[in-house]
Design a binder for these strands. Structure first.
Lengths: 282, 282
DNA sequence: GCGCGCGATACCCGGACGGTATCGCCGAGG
DNA sequence: CCTCGGCGATACCGTCCGGGTATCGCGCGC
């Protein structure tokens, strides 16, 4: 199976429409139809059910969609990491660290400073990314290592070390009746009709249904809290970047959040090992 | 990057010899040279250092060797799993479970029986394999799930659940002086000059140097023990398949062994989830 | 110095991939 | 009921790329 065929199939499976997929791929529709048919013939499996008014995935097709995406990510990772390894010889960046914009705002500078002081440190590029993007960045080679937050982020398929665990606090508008309570319970925060919980994007980019506002990053979120439109439960380290017009109240029964440093398996370069070692010590 | 190019590069990087690699790939040498040059040009990176009397990997080349193997495994997995998903519709095998030949001899039949009794069970094919092969089988799609033994097997990059933990015992010829001791220590077992520890294959198939015999599976191993050529420390569940001419003595300070059931991340099919659930309950 | 082994180059051929034109099918709408 | 429009499949053609053969260039060793 060639990556070209996988790219073509993934495009069709995502669009469920040959002509749109062909446009996306920058080719005409007939060669795309032919390529998919040929792929089906070689695999001995029908991947798509075509009737008029559309295309649907067969069970085998959805297996190939999932596995094919993973394979394409692995190929992209090989490409990117090789390019960077070649340029690193000429003094390019050593490591790319991915972290959610707005999270770990205390830990990150401490880690970077401590690592930079190590004798064999290499330059670290920091990649600020949206919610849930980090796993993808690691898998397709755009990043070498990431700071993740369990249980929000999944670490399946990654190697990791725990760094810190912290309690969570509810972020409320400063003037809200609950803002002066010493502590809260999850049930109280979730039941606020005037402050519905925000909705985060799912891994496919869509949003779950519900009353709360759609948010993509922390700055956006804090602004919505200050405006009295939503409330949210976050790890307490976020206190350091709170605006004065919002309040933080501990939530006793919220799950505690563990910050972990994670990297793709089988990629322990010397530089990465040094960064991980530094991280676990500070 | 096409998988053809990756296959070609991996062949050359493994053989470190263009003509041999070309023979292995079933093509002539000139097109192979050209393909590698073209790959290097497109990546903007030199992958191989050619001087006369041979070829050597550059640092970027060894990155591409590692990442390229992973990518090729992912593509192979996509191919195999799709084929099987297509045939499964016609009543093909549901799950492939990989386990080391001779290990978990009590656990495995119990697990298979318990799972077969589940209402939504699918057929399970058991793949007996050599030491350290299971991870590869999972990654390239030949198996869906495996029984592994920590700390011998690495589970990096896999999802897993713990099943049982057990102590280890030393396996000795029945007539050996130490065979009647109530228990032993690792230092005593390792220091036997007449019974050197066997050598297991490494992940690349080669054997570490040393005095002990080279072994590949458990039957072979037990025969060598009975012949008085070696001794070995194994999990105590292996007692059930010991021959009468060997003895098992507990080793107090040997690391305990945990049997885990493991599967590739992002592949939780309904059938797999059922098998894992059954496994954790028995 | 001559032969030999190995990778690079030159050149040719066939097939695969992509493009344009067109067909066949089905559903919507007047 | 007929027609039109949308969509995927088919037919056909040109081109480029991948593979083969022949040969070169260059070290190394007998």
């Amino acid at each position: 199976m060639e990556t070209r065929e996988l790219r073509y199939f993934v495009a069709v499976a995502e669009e469920l429409h040959f002509s749109r997929a062909a446009r996306r791929l920058g080719i005409a529709q007939p060669p795309l139809s032919r390529a998919i048919r040929q792929l089906e013939r070689r695999l001995g499996v029908t991947l798509l059910e075509r009737d008029s008014r559309g295309v649907a995935l067969t069970p085998a097709g959805s297996v190939l969609l999932r596995e094919g995406r993973a394979a394409l990510d692995a190929v992209a990772a090989a490409d990117r990491r090789t390019r960077r390894a070649g340029q690193a010889a000429n003094g390019g960046a050593g490591l790319v660290l991915a972290t959610k914009a707005g999270a770990s705002s205390e830990l990150l500078p401490k880690l970077l400073d401590a690592y930079a002081a190590e004798p064999d440190a290499v330059p670290v590029e920091v990649l600020l990314c949206g919610i849930g993007e980090q796993e993808r960045l690691l898998r397709d080679g755009r990043a070498d290592v990431a700071l993740l937050h369990r249980p929000f982020d999944s670490i399946t398929g990654l190697d990791s070390e725990e760094l810190v665990t912290e309690q969570q606090v509810a972020i409320l508008p400063a003037g809200h009746p609950l803002a002066h309570r010493p502590h809260l319970r999850m049930a109280e925060v979730e039941a606020l009709p005037d402050l519905p919980m925000p909705r985060w994007p799912r891994s496919d980019g869509s949003y779950p249904p519900g009353p709360g506002p759609e948010v993509r990053d922390h700055a956006q979120l804090l602004q919505l809290v200050a405006l009295g439109r939503t409330s949210v439960v976050l790890p307490e380290s976020c206190r350091s970047l709170l605006r004065p017009d919002v309040a933080a109240v501990p939530v006793l029964d919220a799950p505690s959040v563990t910050t972990v440093i994670a990297w793709p398996p089988h990629s322990r370069s010397r530089a990465l090992a040094g960064l991980v070692r530094t991280a676990t010590r500070c």
